[in-house]
Design a protein around this nucleic acid. Structure first.
Lengths: 189, 189, 189, 189
DNA sequence: AATGAATGAGGATTCATTCAT
DNA sequence: AATGAATGAATCCTCATTCAT
């Protein structure tokens, strides 16, 4: 579905992300989002069915953005370890450079609001999945379900990034290297 | 003069946990919580200052409950590895037996709504912290900040429990043992 | 895009004046005012920021209405005494013909609720102020602060009108003439 | 009806006057009055039937206090003019020394809440009424209804005291003397 | 007499959404 | 497509009052 003004679509999404991350979901009414996007409340309903639809679409948009940035500089021709490190670094950089979007994603990861679209959001990460499968085929990565692989690589990193945002830890390059090493050790043979 | 009724306090807390976990904080109005607790809306305000205060107090209550159950069967006289395994198993069992409370905690782990009381909730986990310090003193556990230790032990487990609740994975005993082994390897020398 | 409806604005104001005068400000809920104005409670907030803003705007509206009617038949070319008598009579007639609005004004004349807009409401009465200044320049009116002039002219009249509304006195033409005479004597040389 | 603890009765009245005058009627809930009086909300209902009853009783109490102070130093054996000046001065002094109570009275003089007890409150002022009647019998005071006498004596003074409290005028001794003179001239032959 | 707990009713206000232009 | 007006329903919370002790 094409709309006349893609700028408005984006403006509404940006305003929603910003407001929800800053003030929380409860304080982000359609009227406030509209005002922040410089648009009439009624206009939001031209682009989105209702508030829940807006939320899910925004969630998917952010996930898609993330997946694109995750693959920056990545190529399927890279060795498994190198390729994974590229994605790993991209993830960390993304979080640092887009703290609001990162926080937004995390806030909704456990919310019942986006229950229906978590599966859909996974589609964006196919290249990563293929990389892991290749690693397992090459006997580099342990034979374990994808979920466990994620649990020992991105879960710790995500948790530590949040700790850094909360000023409870500082992730300097040395620490980052150490974390990567531990994670990579954990999932490789 | 009537006395404050502990049953009412608990009924309100239980209703709040149940509703908030199922429908989210925003969709759990004080009226709904009151009705679920079989109490007048105004009665909630006898026990809690306002909705946010209710959330924070409930969050702390759940954290405290968790911390108590975490230490079941634990003793400071146990060897580090064995002691940690006790706590680890207790955590998994707690999540399985209290899925609503577990989901509740996760939903608010990163929420700005409970920002003020996260520190306070940490106090409940002192025995675990001391265990880790002992492990480091005995050169069993790697010399790393507490946050990183958590990131490679409880973060993966938590993530995988959520995957199991979402029916994307099944954690049988063999898998659990494997996960524990990976985690313990990751943080020990 | 719909346009703001002047009828609705007026209906809300009228309902507010009527209800507040009859039942007092505290007992005139926004819901009651809305119902009396045949409007949704939410609609009031399209025209007024909140209850206090509604009160202040209504207060100013009534004051402005009054000031307009006060000057009916008045001209700056009239002699001071005659000009003042025109305004005096207009005031009495206004009170008689608009008892609700008159009572409304009196109820809030000393209320802290309209503190901010009393000054603004004074602007409507400039012609009267100029008349008094002219009277003083022509050595007809005693040299006294405006407040004292008001205190011996409109304060007594206002008080007596209220007594009449409470059926404790009847202001026939003869009595009115006497009152005017006393007041005019009091403030003229 | 005698109550065990007259202190409590008075404390409640004082708290009510203070709160209502400071924060307005709407913000003076029974709970707040109770707290300000260091008493349980339920205790208020031991001394007063309900909120309206409390208000009326407080209004009457203040009026009675005022009437007592008005007669300080007054004697029926004084000449009319001197006697009236005593009461006049007492009234001004009362307002100055009890601004809260003065404001309270004024705020309620026009309120529909005390409609029923205005008559009753008049009983306290019998000596003043008799003085005026004596003045008329002695052909000193003009033959006019009591209401008109009040309208040209206490109404102006009351209005000017309020102007002074609002910092729009300063009533120094000279001004006060002038005002008295004008008022007395207005009502005497 | 005195009180803190308890509550149903109602308070002001905001909500997501639709209407009319 | 776009919008400000309009709204019934729902929000959190406070109220005057009563209950149970």
């Amino acid at each position: 579905m094409r709309h006349k003004d893609d700028n408005k679509h984006l403006a509404i999404c940006d305003a929603a992300i910003e407001l929800i991350t800053t003030n929380g979901f409860a304080d982000s009414s359609m009227a406030k989002i509209a005002k922040a996007a410089n648009v009439s409340p009624a206009t939001i309903y031209v682009y989105f069915e209702n508030k829940e639809d807006l939320l899910k679409k925004v969630y998917l948009l952010v996930k898609q953005e993330l997946s694109t940035k995750l693959l920056h500089g990545f190529s399927e021709s890279l060795p498994v370890a190198a390729g994974f490190r590229v994605i790993w670094d991209n993830f960390y950089r993304y979080a640092l450079e887009n703290p609001v979007r990162f926080a937004f994603t995390e806030q909704f990861a456990n919310s019942p609001l986006v229950d229906g679209c978590r599966e859909e959001s996974m589609n964006f990460f196919h290249p990563l999945l293929r990389l892991i499968e290749r690693g397992q085929a090459e006997k580099i990565i342990k034979d374990m379900p994808l979920e466990i692989f994620i649990a020992f690589t991105f879960s710790p990193l995500t948790g530590l990034i949040k700790e850094q945002f909360s000023n409870r830890i500082v992730l300097d390059q040395q620490t980052l290297d150490m974390i990567f090493e531990i994670a990579w050790d954990a999932v490789t043979v």
